Amino acid sequence: MVDPDELTDPGPVTADTADWTWVLARRCPDCGFDPDEVGPPALAQAIRDAGQRYAAVLGRPDVRRRPAAGVWSPLEYCCHVRDVCDLMRGRLEQILAGAGRGTVSFADWDQDAAAVRGRYWRSDPAVVGAELAGASRAAAAAFERPAAGQWDWPGLRSDGFGFTARTLGGYLRHELTHHLWDVRG
């Protein structure tokens, strides 16, 4: 085990300022995610499967190594995915709690600030593995809950982009797929 006090801060990563919502309308040329292949019946299992694949990534001996300056290490990506699972589960729970009576609003979330605040680079891979396993299981269970009509209930991100429970699930599935591609998982 690595002593966190002996780790050196690798510095900041290049901020991702892209608007990734386009993946809800067309195939991602990088990771191959296709929004037309995403549907509620398979979503929960896809989340569980991705969680297992990330566990294998966390077992790599080079899990802390950044592939290039300004790019997260596999460990940092796994921390991000853990947090995204929790975030999307929470947003889905907000939509369901709104009971379709109107559009719920999501609090802002800055992934880069979360990485700095959480000191992702300093995390223990075993701890992250347990947390990610729990977060992916909880997200999968949450995305099993909506009934047919609930998939179209709305939510609004702080930048004004509108989601439904269905597109929120698709967005999460892209995050899981794309970051596995990022870490060659």
Score class of each variant (00 low, 15 high):
P154N: 08
G185N: 08
T21K: 06
V116K: 11
Y54Q: 02
A126Q: 14
R101C: 00
T164N: 10
A69L: 12
R89C: 03
V13Y: 02
D124R: 10
I47L: 11
V71F: 00
L180C: 01
A140H: 02
P41I: 09
L92W: 02
R117G: 06
E131T: 05
R157I: 00
A142Q: 04
D36W: 06
S136Q: 03
P74M: 07
P10K: 09
R122Q: 15
S136H: 05
A99H: 09
E131L: 15
R173L: 08
C31E: 11
D36T: 14
A126E: 10
G160Q: 03
T164E: 09
A113Y: 07
G162E: 14
P29Y: 00
P154L: 07
G155S: 11
T8M: 02
Q52T: 12
C28Q: 05
T167W: 04
G100W: 07
D49N: 08
F161G: 07
F161A: 11
G170Q: 02
F163H: 15
R64L: 08
G170F: 02
D49Y: 03
A15R: 15
P10L: 12
A69K: 11
G39T: 12
M1E: 14
R48C: 00
S123E: 15
D86H: 12
S105K: 14
V38Q: 11
A55W: 05
G100M: 07
R117A: 15
A135N: 10
D112F: 01
C31M: 12
